[in-house]
């Protein structure tokens, strides 16, 4: 492979550059790119008599668009993802704004309080919601204890609501981080300049702070949306048949239903949707960051 000369980093020899770049390129090529390519290839193959036949065709994609179930589930998933995104923003933005503009010495402590749940096990947090929302669960126990209800209410668990609630809990810190970072990066003298020119707190927020935090807002929203789009564990944990998401279909096609090619085709769709979202938001972020 011919190397282009790098003017700014000429102090490192050609051999150095070879040695540092070859292993990761090879590894990523073999264990990441190749598997993704394999997924792509599978989506154009078939299952016949219980085995995968390497015949190139578009039938899997045709099935996707002919069978309304898939599209229905995909749209439901996107609605739920939008719900999670919106709720996470609703929780995350005021928190980030408060921490960035209204806390002094406690800032660092509060920041750590947000990143702890961020990195703490998905499973532990999902499980916690399961114990709370279940029909024998703690929320029901609590409501009966307060005599709000007399018999267990079952709609908390096994509903799209439960899935959205659990994922909002999981992704709020994800949404918070880029938001907080972008708010922290707003030079404080811009806020002062706005006040100086006659804008009150409201106008300053709407005209200065909000527009300048858009890149962070977008990054956070992308996180929440994309990660929810591919989630299959939350519906299994706290959702019911009514909250099956697109990744659950993939998972069952790879499991009991044994139709890998169709599962791969759906995965490719999720992948393409994800990547186009990432590209789109990156463009927008670049346009909205005025550095």
């Amino acid at each position: 492979m011919p190397w282009r000369s790098a003017n700014d980093i000429e102090m490192y020899s050609r051999a150095y550059k070879w040695i540092v770049s070859t292993p990761p390129i090879l590894w990523v090529g073999i264990f990441l790119l190749l598997p993704y390519a394999l997924m792509f290839a599978h989506s154009f193959w078939l299952v016949r008599d219980g085995t995968i036949v390497h015949e190139w065709n578009l039938e899997n994609y045709a099935k996707l668009f002919q069978n309304p179930v898939y599209l229905e589930v995909l749209f439901r998933t996107m609605r739920m993802a939008a719900g999670v995104t919106l709720l996470s923003l609703l929780l995350g933005y005021p928190l980030a704004y408060y921490m960035s503009f209204h806390t002094g010495h406690s800032k660092d402590l509060l920041y750590q309080l947000v990143i702890v749940p961020l990195w703490v096990s998905y499973l532990v947090r999902g499980y916690a919601w399961k114990t709370i929302l279940g029909s024998e669960g703690i929320l029901n126990g609590f409501l009966e204890y307060l005599h709000v209800t007399s018999a267990p209410v079952s709609f908390f668990l096994y509903s799209p609501f439960a899935v959205v609630l659990m994922l909002t809990h999981i992704y709020t810190p994800f949404v918070f981080l880029p938001l907080y970072a972008s708010l922290e990066h707003i030079p404080r003298n811009l806020v002062e300049a706005s006040h100086d020119l006659g804008a009150g707190s409201r106008a300053t927020f709407l005209r200065v702070i909000l527009p300048l935090s858009l890149p962070g807002l977008l990054a956070g929203a992308t996180f929440a949306f994309v990660l929810t789009l591919g989630d299959f564990l939350a519906p299994l944990l706290v959702g019911g048949p009514s909250s099956i998401m697109i990744a659950n279909i993939v998972q069952s096609l790879f499991g009991t239903a044994y139709d890998w090619p169709l599962g791969a085709a759906i995965s490719v769709c999720i992948l393409l949707l994800t990547i186009s979202l990432l590209v789109l938001t990156e463009r927008l972020e670049n346009r909205w960051s005025f550095r």
């Binding site: 030079p187 003298n189 811009l190 300049a193 020119l197 006659g198 804008a199 200065v208 300048l212």
Partner: peptide
Amino acid sequence: NTVFQSYALFPHLTVEENVGYGLQVS
């Protein structure tokens, strides 16, 4: 009104929008 040390121009607004800011908000 203040002219700030590092100018504190609003990066997301054009020059005329920056200048018009004070008139609009007031």
